[in-house]
């Protein structure tokens, strides 16, 4: 069994970390209420229990199952979640509660979302103009074209409309938006999706530059490799729950992911085993007893089906939700 050493920060160090906190999410849940078949009401427990901390000058990656609630999490932080959903739990921005009023003020200014879906762009407006509107100063074409060059876009793309751009070009336009804005917190939903290797490296470099600028970046991604390259911490999300938060240093030292789901994710990568474990995550309509991963977990025991594992802190900011993690 592994023995995890706790970091013993001094009071001063702890305070510094606290002051540097950009966003803190605790016990977040998001439930959707909608009409199902034949006017029956259905409740979808989309996010059940999510935790995250991100500091200034830090990149945190969120990886996890498709449909586990990653995009809705981003919406919930920004306060643009569906009208028929209820968000509960605590979200603090720069150590203050993120109220509805503050959110409105911060959205688009302090906090910027880079969306997953390409149809978030205005289909009729030149893409350059769409980037330009996000700039506070330097409100001119030349500045946008400079940013385009930085992200590997031809400056002529300025005058194109979204439908004339390839999949990869749209992702680059999105990152250009992040560079153009003065947001302190950038939530990027699948920013590397559909990019070639060279473009991914360019993109990750730009994300690193944002980090250097003391900004916080939350990168939602299916690309575990990209996450490991750029992120300081990786949060793993499954069925609406944080199942693991791991520090990059741990992985760099050759440590493994601690949660069985994260490990299965790792082994499913084409460059690893391309192994597809059976079944899928529980549906959002299900109320869960026991561990959410029990149905798919190769290590599940009787206990796992009855009792719910808590999210345990194993070292400063590292957590795992499994009875047997690390064994």
């Amino acid at each position: 069994m592994h023995v995890y050493e706790l970091n013993h920060e001094t009071q001063e160090e702890l305070e510094k970390i606290q002051n540097n906190l950009l966003l803190e999410v605790k016990n977040l849940s998001l439930t959707i209420e909608r009409f199902g078949k034949g006017w029956t009401r259905e409740r979808l427990y989309v996010i059940r229990d999510f935790h995250l901390k991100i500091h200034h000058g830090e990149v945190v990656a969120i990886v996890g199952a498709s449909g586990s609630g990653k995009s809705l999490l981003a919406d919930a932080i920004l306060g643009i979640h569906p009208k028929n959903s209820i968000v509960d739990g605590m979200i603090k921005y720069e150590n203050e509660l993120l109220t509805e009023k503050r959110r409105k003020r911060l959205r688009g200014n302090d906090i910027l979302l880079i969306p997953q879906m390409t149809n978030a762009l205005d289909p009729l407006m030149k893409v350059g103009k769409q980037v330009k509107t996000l700039m506070k100063q330097n409100n001119h074409q030349k500045a946008v074209k400079q940013i385009f060059q930085k992200v590997g876009l031809d400056p002529d793309v300025y005058d194109q409309i979204p439908s004339a751009c390839s999949g990869g070009m749209i992702r680059k336009i999105f990152i250009a938006m992040a560079l153009a804005s003065e947001a302190k917190l950038i939530i990027a939903d699948e920013p590397t999706n559909g990019l070639d290797y060279e473009s991914i490296d360019e993109m990750l470099f730009q994300i690193k530059m944002l980090e250097k600028d003391n900004k916080g970046v939350i990168m939602i991604t299916h690309d575990l490799e990209a996450a490991m390259k750029v992120a300081d911490k990786i949060a793993v999300f499954y069925a609406g729950e944080t199942v693991e938060v791991v520090d990059k240093k741990h992985l760099k030292k050759g440590g493994k992911f601690r949660h069985p789901y994260s490990r299965a994710l790792w082994n499913a990568l084409p460059q690893n085993g391309f192994i597809a474990i059976d079944s899928t995550q529980p549906s959002a309509t299900e109320k869960l007893t026991g561990c959410s991963f029990a149905k798919q977990c190769p290590k599940a025991t009787k206990k796992c089906k009855i009792e719910k594992p808590l999210l345990k802190e194993i070292s400063h900011d590292e957590m795992v939700r499994c009875f047997y993690a690390g064994m």
């Binding site: 990886v63 996890g64 199952a65 498709s66 699948e190 999706n193 559909g194 299916h222 575990l224 299965a264 994710l265 790792w266 499913a268 990568l269 084409p270 391309f274 192994i275 597809a276 474990i277 899928t280």
Partner: peptide, 9 residues
Amino acid sequence: SMFDAITQA
């Protein structure tokens, strides 16, 4: 590329 690695596999 829209899927997690397990779903992709």
